[in-house]
């Protein structure tokens, strides 16, 4: 779910298409928009407090084989939540878990890792290397 929540709806749809024919899905609940109250911790590690709300969309689908998929994703994109719920339902079908993992999850995860690595590399370039005062060398 962490991978699907961060992928775009278009990226998930494109990966699902690559899986070949899929079972039919029907919507059981949603997609519907709502809120999650994000909490922080006092001092970073202490008692929880309410920081503020985040928009969230959730969806539940039932595949033709009866398996139920749930999804909650940040933002207000109903299609994103629905596609993530479909993937969740597919993943529970032991016959196609491995295929979905390989064709959908792994590439999306790699894309997210690449995005994070690019940000981390930019952050690293802004890391300060102090000069010693005596000789102005690192």
């Amino acid at each position: 779910m962490a991978v699907l929540a961060r992928a775009s709806d278009a990226a998930i749809a494109e990966r699902l298409d690559a899986c070949g024919p899929l079972p039919a899905f029907e919507r059981v609940r949603g997609p519907e928009q709502g809120l999650v109250m994000a909490r922080g911790r006092t001092g970073g590690g202490g008692a929880p407090f309410n920081l503020g709300e985040v928009t969230v969309t959730r969806c539940t689908v039932r595949a033709a084989n009866g398996l139920i998929g749930h999804a909650y994703v940040t933002g207000r994109n109903g299609r994103h939540a629905e596609l993530a719920a479909c993937v969740d339902a597919l993943m529970q079908d032991t016959a196609c878990t491995e295929t979905v993992e390989r064709i959908v999850i792994t590439p999306l995860e790699a894309a997210e890792h690449a995005r994070r690595a690019a940000t981390a590399a930019k952050a690293e370039a802004t890391k300060v290397h102090f000069f010693a005062m005596q000789n102005m060398r690192t």
Partner: peptide
């Protein structure tokens, strides 16, 4: 926000595992 239902509250976010883009301290060089 008053038009939206609240689905849940989050687990407290873990700022120690933040993917920091900025992080400075004025007390430890």
């Amino acid at each position: 926000r008053t038009t939206l239902p609240r689905f849940a509250h989050s687990l407290p976010i873990d700022t120690a595992s933040m993917r920091a883009e900025r992080r400075i301290s004025a007390i430890y060089k």
